[in-house]
Simulated assay, not measured.
Amino acid sequence: MSKPLIELCVEGIDGFLAAQAAGADRVELCASLLEGGLTPSLATIRAAVKAAHIPVHVIIRPRGGDFLYSEAEFASMLEDVTALRTEGVSGVVIGCLTPDGRIDEARTKALVEAARPMSVTCHRAFDMTADAGEALEALVRCGVDRVLTSGQRDTAVEGIAILKQAVEQAAGRIVIMGCGGLDAANIRTVRDATGLTELHFAALTTVPSGMVFRNPHVGMGGTEKDREYQLTITDESAVRETIAAAKS
């Protein structure tokens, strides 16, 4: 069996640098992973591309929550994709649904057309569709290059049957990239049971803030006040261990 390609999901420039140093084959660059990943700033994207010796894919997601976007939100997504064509980015990561849980083919096709020649991945909006098999065919029709999925379950281990089915259905027409709670202990099991050739994980850990002064009277952004003094970072050693397991 050939060794799978490993994509790391990271937040910000520090996360990118840690993933690259730990041996990732490709990175999905995001902001705000606590919301599942939002589009990072242009300066962050440029810093990553400048430092990169692996492909950088950028998530195009204007907000958290569902994948049913207003006209104004969708217009901003198209603008982001168009802008990134000249920034040295290798790919974009998108996902748009209709209210009844199907792939929004009109919007997906428009984003694919705007993205070329960049690669296009559909993110886990796929996992929120009503029918995985139908959604996969829709993505093929739209010309999407790969789909990120946990097999419509919380974790890839739970979604193994659907992941295997998706790989068989895809039959080389679109890449199935598995994700969902993957780590050094389970990634080989998922790889071997599904036939996945691309795997995706985050390897996040929480560390204390370096702030010495802490104002007990105010919190920012509606989060718990303790959260103000915690940082969620990419755990470089966990990345190395998981990649080693996946490629062994």
Rank of each mutant, 00 (worst) to 15 (best):
I174V: 03
L196T: 03
I162L: 15
T205Q: 14
A203V: 07
A202M: 08
A193F: 14
R188I: 03
T205N: 11
T194E: 05
I174G: 01
T205I: 12
F201M: 06
A203F: 15
G172F: 08
G180P: 02
T197Q: 09
L182S: 03
E198Q: 06
D192W: 12
G181P: 11
F201P: 09
M177G: 04
D192P: 09
F201Y: 13
R173S: 04
T206Y: 14
G181M: 06
Q169W: 15
T189F: 04
V167G: 01
Q169R: 15
G172W: 11
G178S: 02
L196K: 03
T205H: 12
G178I: 00
Q169H: 14
T194G: 10
R173G: 05
A185D: 14
V190I: 11
L199S: 01
I162Q: 15
Q169Y: 09
C179M: 13
A185I: 08
V190N: 06
A193S: 13
G178K: 00
V167P: 00
T197C: 03
G172S: 07
A171W: 13
H200N: 02
Q165K: 08
Q169E: 06
A203E: 14
G181W: 05
I162N: 13
A170G: 07
T194M: 06
L204C: 07
A170V: 01
R188E: 07
L199K: 00
A203N: 10
A202N: 14
I174S: 03
L182W: 04
G195H: 12
A184Q: 11
L199R: 00
E198C: 02
I176H: 00
R173W: 06
E168Y: 08
T194R: 02
T206H: 09
L199D: 03
A193Q: 13
T194I: 02
G180K: 00
N186I: 05
V175F: 05
A202F: 13
Q165P: 06
D183N: 15
A203S: 13
E168W: 10
L196S: 05
Q169N: 08
L204E: 14
A166D: 10
R191V: 07
D183I: 02
V175Y: 08
L199F: 01
V207H: 06
A193R: 10
T189Q: 12
L182A: 02
G178H: 01
T189D: 12
G180A: 00
G195N: 09
M177R: 03
F201K: 07
A171P: 12
L204H: 11
A203M: 15
L199M: 08
L199G: 01
T197F: 02
N186T: 10
A184C: 04
C179I: 12
G178L: 01
I176Y: 01
G178F: 00
L182V: 04
I160T: 14
G172R: 08
A202R: 15
